[in-house]
Amino acid sequence: MELNTLQMMESYRPLNTPKAPKAGDQQALKEACKEFETILLEQMLNSMRKTINKSGLMQGGMAEDIFEDMLYEKYARKMSDSANLGLADMLYRQLSQKHTLPI
């Protein structure tokens, strides 16, 4: 893939020069903020889950652990989608404050 002169000059711009956001950049930023909120919720739920003592009556082994991880991931995604925690919105506002995105 060849780069034309304009593309090469664009890549050598100083790091502190803001770059105008493209149409999809704002949507990508929103999605990244939402994904961060989901990951944070999942970590919180996993930490809470570790505090629960298992009775030992029914142990599903590694399969149970895998499916439980998947379940808590879905819980985190559902909480992020439905609960209005505001973390993703706050991150989005902070990161898009100047209406420019970093290079």
Rank of each mutant, 00 (worst) to 15 (best):
M1H: 09
L3V: 02
L3Y: 10
L3N: 09
T5M: 06
T5V: 10
M8F: 06
M9W: 07
M9G: 04
M9S: 07
M9P: 00
Y12P: 00
Y12M: 13
R13S: 15
R13M: 12
N16V: 02
T17V: 15
T17G: 03
K19Q: 14
P21S: 09
P21L: 14
A23W: 13
A23C: 12
G24D: 13
D25F: 12
Q26S: 04
Q26P: 00
E31H: 01
A32R: 06
A32E: 08
A32Q: 05
A32T: 06
E35P: 01
F36L: 12
F36T: 13
F36E: 09
E37C: 11
E37L: 07
T38Q: 09
I39D: 10
I39Y: 04
I39P: 00
L41G: 05
M44N: 07
M44E: 00
N46H: 10
K50L: 06
K50T: 08
T51H: 04
T51L: 05
I52N: 02
N53L: 14
N53V: 13
K54E: 11
S55M: 05
S55C: 02
S55T: 11
G56N: 06
L57E: 12
Q59C: 00
Q59T: 06
Q59M: 02
G60S: 08
G60Q: 12
G61S: 06
G61I: 12
M62I: 10
A63G: 10
E64D: 13
E64G: 09
D65V: 04
F67M: 05
F67P: 00
F67L: 07
E68T: 15
E68L: 15
E68F: 11
D69M: 02
D69T: 05
D69K: 08
D69H: 04
M70D: 01
L71G: 02
Y72N: 02
Y72P: 02
E73P: 00
K74R: 12
Y75P: 01
A76W: 09
A76M: 05
R77I: 09
R77M: 12
K78D: 07
K78F: 13
M79D: 03
M79Q: 08
S80W: 01
D81Q: 15
S82A: 10
S82R: 06
A83V: 15
N84D: 15
L85H: 03
L85E: 07
L85S: 01
G86H: 02
G86E: 03
G86M: 06
L87H: 00
A88H: 08
A88P: 10
A88S: 15
D89S: 11
D89N: 11
D89Q: 09
M90L: 15
L91R: 06
L91E: 08
Y92L: 08
Q94E: 09
Q94N: 09
L95D: 03
S96F: 14
S96L: 02
S96T: 05
Q97H: 10
T100P: 05
T100G: 07
L101Y: 04
L101E: 04
P102Y: 07
I103V: 08
